[in-house]
Design a protein around this nucleic acid. Structure first.
Lengths: 176, 176
DNA sequence: TTAGTTCTTGACCTATCGGTCTAGAATAGC
DNA sequence: GCTATTCTAGACCGATAGGTCAAGAACTAA
């Protein structure tokens, strides 16, 4: 997963992956079948063990604006650590989704969940009086778009301080 | 250029490129050298003949808010036309920039110019009384991030009406 | 101890990758 | 009409891609 995350799908050769995983060739093929299946397993793992819980925290009943802030701060920080890997789901959306239906399905589900998460967080924030938005769904969509933007930004080597500035600006726009 | 734009760098084989370009194999190698040089030529062409002028229009002395609006509307529209190609510069940032210094340089220059363009448009908008922003550079950065977000969004098949909604929301945030 | 399973090693396979070479066809300039 | 350059067609190249096979090593359980 980490290797695909850094290198992308096509640029990661099975040789490199085997070296990185430090297992035997046959073990890998016995366990995962082929490269594409291995990638799908990686992407699902990333989603379920990684981003899934991060997205889920947006829907926390006591989250609200803090949950949104944590999301963007966390993303900005993760995006800016040593190997600039961006986010595997965003990378996959760009590189593979157009000609890989299975990847497209996973990516699409992620985007929908993220959008729902933001909508929920906004709802809580409104109830707590932290935010005031006229069209909650449109704002949730805008937040989703901003989240996706951080991927290309980090790969373009935009430094942490600027990503942090983006995160602050996003929050400023919805804060009451 | 169009083929790379749709398929990405690695996924586009020289065979496919030759078919798409409808020229002889040797003509291509004589003219461009190799695949990587061909790609760089494509990316530069895309930048100079395509995005360059779009970005430049942001700095138009009479642009202001309208220029920003046109930029996002245009992007949303272009992103949503038949083959969902996103933007070649954003695609390249994600797929290649981390391990391709030459691509990284072009992409980085693009991001900087886009940011400057937004800053200039905001300056004009403020002077015309169309917008009021507290930290112009931070807002420009935020707009840049939003622009980058449209790439992954379109590749994730988010429909036009939603991208349009994102564009409207962006404008709403800076309008006076 | 021993039988059965799992893991590792590395030789091996075919297909395709990017790229070269050559010889003929077309197209220019004069 | 002739020469020189450019383009095309397609055979060809080594390297490497993803993937298979077979045999031995290591571990597990009774």
């Amino acid at each position: 997963m980490n290797f695909f995350w850094e290198q992308g799908y096509e640029a990661a050769s099975m040789r490199d992956l085997l070296d990185a995983m430090e297992i035997g060739r046959q073990s890998l093929y016995d366990t995962f079948g082929d490269k594409h299946s291995l990638f799908l397993a990686s992407l699902k793992h990333y989603y379920e063990q990684g981003m899934g819980s991060v997205v889920a925290q947006l829907s926390a009943p006591d989250g609200g604006l803090t949950a949104i802030e944590d999301y963007f701060d966390g993303m900005a920080r993760r995006m800016s650590t040593k190997p600039y890997r961006s986010c595997l789901l965003i990378n996959s959306a760009v590189e593979l989704a157009p000609h890989d239906p299975e990847v497209a399905t996973i990516v699409s589900r992620f985007v929908k969940n993220l959008r729902k998460g933001f909508a929920k967080a906004l709802e809580v924030a409104e109830r707590k009086g932290e935010a005031r938005v006229d069209d909650r769904d449109a704002v949730a969509l805008h937040l989703t778009n901003s989240a996706m933007g951080l991927g290309p930004m980090s790969r373009a080597r935009v430094p942490y301080k600027d990503l942090k500035l983006v995160a602050e600006q996003i929050l400023k726009n919805i804060r009451a």
